[in-house]
Amino acid sequence: MSDIALTRPVPVTTEPPLARYLLIGLAAVFVALFLFAPLVTVFVEALRQGWVGVIDALRLPDAQAAIRMTLTIAAIAVPLNATFGIAAAWAITKFDFRGKAFLITLIDLPFSVSPVVAGLMLVLLFGANSTLGGWLIANDMPIVFAFPGILLATLFVTFPFVAREIIPVMIEQGRTEEEAALTLGASGWRTFFTVTLPNIRWALLYGVLLCNARAMGEFGAVAVVSGKIRGETATMPTMVEMFYNEYLSVAAFTLAAVLAMLALLTLLLKSLLEWRHAELLAATRRH
């Protein structure tokens, strides 16, 4: 009897402490090993010659051109795909039409197509050997191996991010609120800005951030269409590879560190916004 009384009661709704610590420890080790360690390595390699090496690397014209290129590409690709994503999600969730399932599958296509194939498709479509590409090049409007090609490749691979984030939220919310707004006499645009947009804003933000991260980090598709012209058509990820291949590992890892910083900044921005608008966020989620 007394034996039983001395045993600490274990709540049946949770795991025993040992299992709990083991699981937490396992997760921590995993995160440290596969996420934290590689990230730290990037920064350690970049700082191998101290801050002087980093500053020298960032002063290389090729590095600066690559950073400018990547930021420009992201600044154009992200708003375009955000607009597209909202339009697609709106069409899919607010209307019934033939081929809706097909459209959803089509939006997912860039996820399933390998980036290399995406790049090669652009080369086949706009390269010198196609009719369209031949005409464009003859008229001094080259697409592949120039800025537009890199933009198109980035647009293609980041195509689904925003739409994919918004569609589930909009499906879950249904059409009742919009219908109410419309019956009360609001115009289409007003309904969108006062009813729909506030409801989807967090999903939209998350989609935009993911889209941005991928737009800046894309390598495969961009490498195929970039033509590797230094200072002209090199983005940050392709420049990292070029520097590495030229035994300029400090420059390569400095640029990689800048890329990582941009990604971390994106995440920080997301957390900050979530934290500041925690209540709003909770309210949206209650819907």
Binding site: M69, I76, P79, L80, M141
Partner: peptide, 29 residues
């Protein structure tokens, strides 16, 4: 052009970005 683009985009949004692509294309030409 890219620099101005980036600035302009922040100010007036998507339409500028769309126009920017056209500009870049014709600019190159």
């Amino acid at each position: 052009l890219r620099k101005t683009l980036t600035g302009a985009y922040l100010r007036s949004g998507i339409l500028t970005a769309v126009a920017a692509i056209g500009l870049t294309l014709t600019g190159t030409a």
